[in-house]
């Protein structure tokens, strides 16, 4: 997994690429949460470079989403590839986590 992030104002855009499965899901969560600043009000996770996500990876996103929700912060994901989009659609996670086609759309949403 590789990460980068870009902060402007109270919006943090995290870009994650590679694969998330049971072997690195907890690292994924740690890296993700390590990037959050107390001042971030809106977190957008750009998964355009994500090739694969397993159920363990979905669970991490769920934990991050619920955690941010409790702090009344917004969390969304965007730019899903077809394969990852299928995982979100079939698992029903697209009904639980906000999914947008692009970072721009997520910023407006």
């Amino acid at each position: 997994m590789e990460f980068s992030h870009d902060r402007s104002g109270d919006t943090l855009v995290v870009t994650a690429s590679g694969r998330v499965d049971g072997s690195n899901a907890s690292d994924f969560l740690e890296s993700l949460q390590g990037m959050f600043d107390p001042g971030d009000q809106r977190i957008i996770l750009d998964l355009g470079g994500l090739e694969y996500i397993s159920s363990a990876g979905l669970r991490v996103l769920l934990m991050a989403a619920q955690n941010l929700d409790r702090q009344s912060k917004s969390f969304s994901i965007c730019s899903l590839t077809e394969a990852v989009g299928d995982v979100f659609r079939i698992s029903g996670f697209d009904q639980i986590i906000n999914v947008f086609p692009s970072v721009e759309a997520a910023k407006q949403g």
């Binding site: 979905l58 996670f93 009904q95 639980i96």
Partner: peptide, 8 residues
């Protein structure tokens, strides 16, 4: 229609 069980 549905979602994985246990999350919401």
């Amino acid at each position: 229609k549905g979602v994985a069980l246990g999350i919401a």
